[in-house]
């Protein structure tokens, strides 16, 4: 079970500012708990789509913190339109959440 992302998207002068807080353990694989290594478990791809068109992709590794915060801007969005964020982790699990641009 994964928790929803929190997404805020605001447009100003044609530029949409998107801020996302994801809930993910982001285990590096380097950590030892009770004498055993904790297996790596992290988001390795993030894709942002606006009206079905990809506006940003990111390839992440284990250096990204737990519960990552992501901010990016793109041109061409308008208030009321949807922005969707999808992450996929190294276990193949993924989650998509959507927000309306304000």
């Amino acid at each position: 079970m994964t928790s929803p992302m929190r997404i805020r998207a605001n447009v100003r002068d044609g530029v949409v500012d998107v801020r996302v807080l994801m809930a993910h353990e982001m285990e590096t694989g380097q950590r030892v708990e009770n004498g055993r290594p904790v297996p790596a478990w992290f988001i390795n791809e993030v894709v942002a789509t606006h009206n079905g068109k990809t506006v940003m992709t990111a390839q992440w590794g284990p250096a990204v913190s737990k519960n990552p915060y992501l901010q990016f801007r793109f041109r061409g969005g308008a208030a009321g339109e949807k922005i969707a964020i999808k992450w996929t982790d190294n276990r193949g699990e993924s989650r998509t959440d959507e927000a309306t641009i304000a």
Binding site: R6, R8, N10, R19, L21, N67, Y69
Partner: peptide
């Protein structure tokens, strides 16, 4: 929050 708090505390208080 967005107007008065987020500039220091972050959009999500994070």
């Amino acid at each position: 929050w967005e107007a008065k708090c987020a500039s220091c505390h972050g959009t999500f208080g994070e």
